[in-house]
Structure formats: structure tokens, C-alpha cells
Simulated scan of single mutants.
Amino acid sequence: MAIKMDVEMRARIQRLGEARHRSMHWMMKEAIRQFVEREERQEAFRQAGIQAWEAYRSTGLHATQAEADAWMARLEAGEDAEPPHCHV
């Protein structure tokens, strides 16, 4: 696999690699690994949101913002609080 990049970017990667005693190859593989992991987490979050929306649309079950805020306030206060029950 080949990656085309401008001279400035190549020099920046080279400098970072030298400062960290890593090869350019390692630096690029690490950057790609971090990017893919971040994008996978973002996509999983997006998919969970879509699933939650579809569940709401099919059942109508929900908790109000006030109920969620009250629950979060209890958690912030250190209580071991159960989440609010969903209702129609």
C-alpha cells in the first residue's frame, strides 16, 4: 500500500518519529489504528442511537428529561440510584 503525502507532512511525521524513537512506518500505522478505533466507536454510538430511536418509535416507551435529570442528580450526589422506568 502506498500513501501519497506532501513534503511538509512527511517531514512532520519524520520529526515526530525521531523524537519518539519510532519509524515513520510505525507512526503511520499507529495513526491509522487510532483513527479506525475512533471511527468504529463513533459508528457504534451512531448505531445505538438509531436503534434507540427505532425502539422508541415502535413502543413509545421513554423517560422524560426531568426524570433523567433527577436520576443524574442522584448519581452525581453519590447515590446508587436506579435509572427511571420507561413509560408511554
Rank of each mutant, 00 (worst) to 15 (best):
A2V: 10
I3N: 05
I3P: 05
I3E: 07
K4I: 14
K4Y: 14
K4A: 11
M5T: 13
M5E: 05
D6G: 07
V7F: 00
V7W: 02
V7P: 04
M9I: 13
M9N: 08
R10M: 05
A11T: 01
A11M: 04
I13K: 02
Q14I: 00
Q14K: 04
R15N: 09
L16H: 02
E18R: 07
E18W: 03
E18Q: 15
E18L: 08
A19Q: 12
A19G: 09
H21P: 00
R22M: 15
R22H: 08
S23E: 04
S23C: 13
M24P: 03
H25D: 15
H25W: 08
H25V: 12
H25P: 02
W26Y: 14
W26M: 03
M27C: 11
M28R: 10
M28N: 04
K29G: 03
K29V: 11
K29T: 12
E30V: 10
A31I: 09
I32F: 15
R33T: 06
R33H: 14
F35P: 01
V36I: 15
E37M: 11
E37K: 10
E37V: 10
R38W: 10
E39G: 02
E39D: 08
E39A: 05
E40A: 14
R41C: 03
R41Q: 14
Q42H: 14
Q42A: 15
E43P: 07
E43Y: 11
A44Q: 15
A44F: 05
F45C: 05
R46W: 05
Q47K: 12
Q47F: 09
Q47A: 12
Q47M: 12
A48R: 12
G49Q: 06
Q51W: 13
Q51T: 13
Q51A: 15
W53R: 06
W53C: 00
E54Q: 15
A55M: 12
Y56P: 00
Y56R: 11
R57F: 07
R57V: 09
S58V: 11
S58Y: 07
T59Q: 10
L61Q: 13
L61V: 04
H62P: 00
H62V: 01
H62Y: 08
A63R: 05
A63E: 05
E67W: 00
A68F: 04
A68C: 06
A70Q: 09
A73S: 13
A73D: 14
A73N: 09
R74Q: 11
R74I: 02
R74F: 00
L75Y: 02
L75P: 00
L75V: 08
G78K: 03
D80K: 01
A81Y: 04
A81R: 00
A81F: 04
E82G: 03
E82Q: 13
E82K: 13
P83S: 07
P84L: 04
P84T: 01
P84W: 02
P84H: 02
H85A: 15
H85L: 14
H85F: 07
H87A: 05
H87Q: 08
H87T: 06
H87S: 15
